[in-house]
């Protein structure tokens, strides 16, 4: 259940580093994305990115802290959602 989704995490981390964070900042899978790292525009772009890349639809019920707190939790949310829609 809580098996890490390394591949998903890597894809998400790449996007976060390349598109959302300043060049000098590097983060890890357990860093809190919401407290300081990403502003609201960046979080919204991140939601758009996972929807588009992984073919899911993040509605208001999914757009919650538990899912978006860290790269790891986001990857789990993506994996869960993909599994349930397949």
């Amino acid at each position: 259940m809580t098996q890490p989704n390394r591949e998903l995490e890597a894809t998400i981390l790449t996007f976060v580093h390349q598109e959302l964070l300043p060049a000098e900042v590097t983060i890890d899978r357990d860093d809190d994305l919401l407290s300081d790292l990403l502003d609201s525009v960046a979080v919204l772009r991140l939601a758009g990115f996972v929807d588009e890349t992984f073919g899911i639809t993040t509605g208001p019920r999914d757009f919650v802290v538990e899912n978006f707190q860290t790269t790891a939790s986001l990857a789990q949310y993506v994996a869960r959602t993909r599994a349930s829609t397949r």
Partner: peptide, 17 residues
């Protein structure tokens, strides 16, 4: 509220993108 949140989210996401 459920309806406006969904619509607000759509608006802000497209704006952010």
């Amino acid at each position: 509220g459920a309806e406006t949140l969904a619509r607000a989210m759509d608006l802000l996401r497209s704006d952010a993108a």
